[in-house]
Amino acid sequence: MPLYMDIHSIEGGVSVDDVVKAHMADLRTQGRYDVSYLRYWVDEAHGKIFCLAEAPTADAAAAVHREAHGLVAGEIYQVQEGS
């Protein structure tokens, strides 16, 4: 299944605690869309969140975020894993 990396930009910064809550909501929702959110990274000071997911399409990955918590990524890219 394709891999997607999405990028969220939160004005004013973001806390890891809030991202953890959003990620848990993603995990509860992802099965309805055949998506698997694998990992995420957070830059609190700059308000950046990066999410890695296996999904059939970019739209399916975005739908999970939309339904789970409403924080849809501003950018999403299909990526290939390297070493």
Rank of each mutant, 00 (worst) to 15 (best):
S15F: 03
Q78D: 07
D43W: 00
H65N: 13
H69M: 08
Q30W: 05
Y37W: 08
D43V: 12
G13A: 11
Y37V: 02
Y4Q: 02
M1D: 09
G13K: 06
Y37L: 12
E67Y: 00
V72G: 15
V72H: 05
L52W: 03
L27T: 00
E11Y: 10
C51V: 05
G12E: 06
L27C: 10
A68F: 08
R28L: 14
A55R: 07
V16I: 08
R39D: 15
A62W: 07
P2K: 01
I49E: 00
G82A: 14
C51E: 06
V19N: 02
H65D: 11
H8K: 05
L71V: 04
V19P: 06
T57S: 09
T57Y: 00
D18F: 13
D17L: 03
V64P: 08
H69L: 04
V16L: 15
K48C: 10
P56N: 06
M1W: 04
H23D: 10
L52D: 07
P2G: 08
D26G: 11
S36H: 14
R28T: 01
C51G: 10
L3C: 10
P2R: 07
R66C: 13
A25W: 04
I7H: 05
G82T: 13
E75C: 10
Y40R: 05
L52H: 08
P2T: 12
F50Q: 02
Y33F: 14
L3F: 12
M24R: 13
A60L: 00
H69W: 06
V72L: 15
A55G: 07
A73R: 12
V42A: 10
A22C: 11
L3I: 04
G13Q: 10
E75T: 07
R28P: 04
E81R: 14
A68D: 09
C51F: 07
H46F: 05
E54F: 04
A45P: 04
H23Y: 15
L71Y: 11
A73I: 07
G82Y: 02
R39M: 15
I7E: 13
G74L: 09
A63H: 03
Q80E: 15
I76W: 02
K48H: 07
D18P: 07
A53M: 06
T29C: 12
K21V: 08
A58T: 02
A25I: 01
L52A: 09
V20D: 13
A53F: 02
H23E: 01
E44M: 04
A22R: 11
A53V: 11
S15A: 14
A61E: 03
A55F: 03
Q30I: 08
A45S: 15
E54A: 12
A73N: 09
A62T: 00
A55H: 08
M1Y: 12
A25C: 05
D17T: 05
Q30E: 14
Y33C: 13
V19Q: 10
A45M: 05
Q78L: 04
H8M: 08
F50W: 05
P56Y: 01
Y33D: 03
